[in-house]
Design a protein around this nucleic acid. Sequence first.
DNA 1: GCGCTTACGATAGCTTCCTATCACTTCCAT
DNA 2: ATGGAAGTGATAGGAAGCTATCGTAAGCGC
Lengths: 234, 234
Amino acid sequence: MTSATGGRRRDALANSERLIAAARKVFASGGQGSLEEIAGEAGVGVATLYRHFSSRESLTRAVYRSIMRDELLPLLRHSCAQGSARQSFLLIVERLLELLDRERGLIASSADFAVLTDDLLREFLEPFAVLLRHAQEANEIRADLQPYDIPRVLSILVVGLSTPPASPADRRRYVSLVFDAMRPDQAEPLPPLDEKDVVEGMRSGFTAIRIASSSRHPESSPREGIHVQPGEFG
Amino acid sequence: MTSATGGRRRDALANSERLIAAARKVFASGGQGSLEEIAGEAGVGVATLYRHFSSRESLTRAVYRSIMRDELLPLLRHSCAQGSARQSFLLIVERLLELLDRERGLIASSADFAVLTDDLLREFLEPFAVLLRHAQEANEIRADLQPYDIPRVLSILVVGLSTPPASPADRRRYVSLVFDAMRPDQAEPLPPLDEKDVVEGMRSGFTAIRIASSSRHPESSPREGIHVQPGEFG
DNA sequence: GCGCTTACGATAGCTTCCTATCACTTCCAT
DNA sequence: ATGGAAGTGATAGGAAGCTATCGTAAGCGC
């Protein structure tokens, strides 16, 4: 039981990563590609692909997570250290939209791109919560927004402006529109969040940022989660 | 060439409608159902299904359109005659969300539910434009929103709150949030719409409400469009 | 009513995703 | 270094979407 790798053999771990890299490459070429093609690109048999990822959806999720980890995590680390928190959210949405614009294959490969995006953004709940608190303390964002709202709103925006793909101008327009709704001087107090969501958010998001949505997708393995040092974003 | 039916034989037209009804029934039972199952339910062979609908996506689109026509059109007719236009938009989103909550099968059957929703809502551009103008004249909605924005914003909301399905409380919350962004006393003027969209909207939406997005889905036949009497919503 | 056109059912076959099996190889703890 | 656990490729096969064909039936213009 090699603690760092979750007890998996080194070759298995390597194959897993090669599969994700291969899928990422195939997706980047525009199409979703057959699973055989992806397995071939990774230099393994299709059976091995299925051993690591129970379905196309599962592989796609891993790829998406890998992209988010590479692109979003640095951005978040940087944002927390400095700058307007409201601006950071803007940056994150725009960055995400921009990179998804080049990832039509990934989107095509997702059976449910919206659910995927929502799940993955929820894994960033802790850093989002920190950013939100900063923004609210600076009176940049309305006080009745709660941490759980952030991944949800971001995913609604990202999905809504990726499918169908919006032009850069339209992206700016609708992102601005929604961000206008987050101003501190709002017209009406928001209706409350569903209690269930809040509780779930607290439980799965704040203690340790792993898979926030394991209940919806039990096959997802925790070892594939996005890992954030607890308290790193304070 | 029987003008009203677009020159199709009566039995073919009937089969088309039976197929839509059958699919609607199968979808309502929760699953997406195999196409053979749907064809069986309609009492026709699977080849006939493909003769009328080139793919599952095409059939799903027809079902979705049929639902929208049945549910949304009366609501729009009623809204235009009376009441707050802003309230009408609210009603439409909520109505749509409510009925989609019972249509998980339809959603599952859509390869791209977001594109479908966006396309279909765009077919209502004219009545939306009328409602918007009323709302703006009554200073209920910010003046820099344009007709084309309405279907887009509505589809973003509807899709974002249907996948993953949001609780009624969450739906109210996020609908309220976005509608707050549409208030007349907005913080910042919106960045402009993409010119291309505006032009396309004008061309395909305002002259005659048929298929607003024929360029993206050429296989859609005009005869299946949602028909609105020109000028009915004024 | 008649004949042409259109639409039909049945069926066979292709592709992709996915499951399952099995003999063989690689890794790793001891 | 070695035995056993973990991992692997190859492959066969099933389900579903989709295409294509063909002989037959039904609608429609005349």
